[in-house]
């Protein structure tokens, strides 16, 4: 399995195959639990951290923050996971041992890839509202806006990845989706 993972490229992951994501999740899960044991987290907490690390990894790949893997996927997951564990411990005021200065570990440069976005900030009120109404949009609008804003696709990329036939069709579909979203938000704030 290790060799399968080593052959996976960023492009493979960007295709979004559930099976591939499932394999990576399963291949690293037990190793991560073993690794986290020394920090005395409960297994449930460890799984939570592992999943959060996995989501951060996923978002960075999908948003094009990483162009090529400079280390194995396991190293990425462990590196992010370690950052999250220390962050969690620091928030809970836990210590690993009295001689260990957690502030040394939280630095971003301990990560495999300094360009990684570790943003786990709470959403603002406006963002919560946008998220709520985004999820009420039709599937096509959700997909289009996701390709554009989340994946950072150009209109040409969108045409290649979907069944839109021309740039004008994409542009007008996007305008319609944005208009619907704005209308729904406005009608919500008028309620």
């Amino acid at each position: 399995m290790e060799s399968v993972q080593e052959n996976i490229t960023v492009e493979d992951l960007k295709e979004g195959s559930d099976l591939l994501f499932k394999r990576i999740y399963e291949d690293n899960r037990d190793k991560f639990i073993n690794f986290a044991r020394k920090y005395r987290l409960s297994e449930d907490d460890t799984i939570d951290v592992y999943q959060d690390a996995y989501i951060i990894f996923y978002n960075n790949v999908m948003q094009g923050k990483v162009e090529v893997f400079t280390s194995s996927i396991s190293t990425y997951l462990f590196s992010i996971g370690k950052y999250l564990i220390f962050d969690k411990m620091k928030k809970n005021n836990k210590t690993i041992n009295p001689d260990f200065d957690l502030s040394l570990i939280r630095e971003r440069d301990t990560l495999v890839d300094a360009s990684f976005d570790l943003d786990q900030d709470e959403l603002t009120t406006e963002q919560v509202l946008l998220k709520k109404h985004f999820s009420t949009l039709g599937k096509k609008c959700q997909e289009l806006l996701t390709l554009f804003y989340y994946r950072g696709y150009t209109i040409k990329d969108i045409i290649l990845a979907s069944d839109y036939t021309s740039e004008n069709v994409v542009k007008s579909a996007k305008s319609r989706c944005m208009k619907t979203l704005k209308e729904r938000i406005n009608s919500n704030s008028n309620d």
Binding site: Y58, Q127, F134, S135, L145, T146, Y150
Partner: peptide
């Protein structure tokens, strides 16, 4: 903000 909202939505789907 919409970009962040969509990212959060995608994170929920992945979760």
């Amino acid at each position: 903000n919409l970009k962040k909202a969509i990212k959060s939505h995608e994170s929920d789907v992945m979760k």
